[in-house]
C-alpha cells in the first residue's frame, strides 16, 4: 500500500472570527476520485482554496506525496503538481484548441520567456496526443472561443493534464452542463486520472455525477466534516439526508 497522495490534517480557517472550516482531515490515494459535497456555505470552496494555495489555513497541515505544501503560493503548488479546473470555463479565446494545449505545455516546461522561434511547431506532437486523449483532435485547428460548452470542459481537462499533475482539483466541474454530458465528462476524467495515477478532488452539486463517479464522498456542513464513505454509505446516512440530500425528490431519488 503506497502512502496516500494527499494527506490533510486538522485544517482550520476563519473569516472575521467566524469559523468557515474547522478541523477537517482526510486523505486521497493515487488515482482516486474524491467528491466534496455539502450545502452552500458549508466550507467546500474554502477547503478547496486552502489545498490549492489561494487561501492560507489558520491551522492544520496539507501534505502532497509526503511534502508539506501548507500555505505555499498557488503558483508554487501548481509547480509541485497540482492542476486545477474552474467552475466557469476559462480558456484562451484568441488561440486555437491546439494552441491552448501548446500554451499549457510551454508553461509546464517554463519555456514561455522564449521570444524568437514561432509557437507553431513547438510540442505539437504532445499537444496532439493530449487532444486525442480527450477526443478533441478533430477540432484542433478551431478557435477555442467557438467550441461547444462540453468541448471547452474537455479542453480544460487536457490543459490541466499537460503539466502531468499528481493531484487535480476540480471546482464544480460539470456546472452548467447537460445531465448526460456531466456523467460522461467525469467518467472521462476518471479514466484518464486512473491511467495516470492522478488523484482527483472535486466539488459537485449534481448527485447523479457524485454517486456514479466518486470512489469516496466527504460531506461538509458548517465547516465540519460530518460524514465520509462510499456512495451507498452516504445515501444511507440519516444526518446527511436531513441537512443536504433532503427527501431526494428534487435530486433524483438519491
Amino acid at each position: 500500500m503506497p502512502e496516500p497522495r494527499l494527506i490533510v490534517t486538522g485544517l482550520r480557517r476563519a473569516f472575521g472570527g467566524q469559523p468557515a472550516v474547522s478541523d477537517v482531515s482526510f486523505t486521497l490515494d493515487q488515482g482516486e476520485m474524491l467528491a466534496l459535497i455539502g450545502p452552500n456555505g458549508a466550507g467546500k470552496s474554502t477547503t478547496f482554496n486552502m489545498v490549492g494555495g489561494q487561501l492560507r489555513p489558520d491551522a492544520g497541515q496539507i501534505r502532497l506525496d509526503g511534502r508539506d505544501i501548507t500555505g505555499l503560493s498557488p503558483r508554487r503548488i501548481a509547480g509541485l503538481g497540482v492542476g486545477r479546473t474552474f467552475q466557469i470555463t476559462a480558456t484562451f479565446g484568441s488561440m486555437t484548441v491546439r494552441e491552448n494545449v501548446q500554451m499549457a505545455l510551454l508553461a509546464a516546461r517554463r519555456e514561455f520567456w522564449r521570444a524568437w522561434r514561432p509557437v507553431r511547431d513547438q510540442h505539437a506532437a504532445e499537444a496532439a496526443a493530449l487532444l486525442e486523449a480527450v477526443g478533441l483532435l478533430a477540432q484542433a485547428s478551431r478557435p477555442a472561443a467557438i467550441l461547444a460548452y462540453g468541448d471547452l470542459k474537455r479542453l480544460e481537462l487536457a490543459m490541466a493534464l499537460a503539466d502531468k499533475p499528481r493531484l487535480l482539483l476540480m471546482d464544480e466541474p460539470t456546472a452548467g452542463m447537460a445531465p448526460a454530458e456531466r456523467v460522461a465528462l467525469m467518467q472521462l476524467t476518471r479514466r484518464l486520472a486512473s491511467g495516470r495515477r492522478v488523484a482527483v478532488l472535486f466539488t459537485e452539486h449534481d448527485m447523479d455525477v457524485v454517486f456514479s463517479t466518486a470512489d469516496r464522498i466527504l460531506v461538509l456542513n458548517r465547516g465540519r466534516l460530518i460524514a465520509s464513505g462510499t456512495g451507498p454509505q452516504i445515501r444511507a446516512n440519516q444526518q446527511v439526508r436531513e441537512i443536504y440530500l433532503g427527501t431526494g425528490q428534487t435530486s433524483g431519488g438519491h
Binding site: 498557488p74 501548481a78 484562451f92 484568441s94 488561440m95 501548446q102 509546464a108 480544460e156
Partner: peptide, 17 residues
Amino acid sequence: YAIRATRDAPARADAIG
C-alpha cells in the same frame, strides 16, 4: 502567446503556471 494568455483568461494563465 503567454502575453495573450494573460489577457484572454488570467485565472487559467495562473493555473497552468
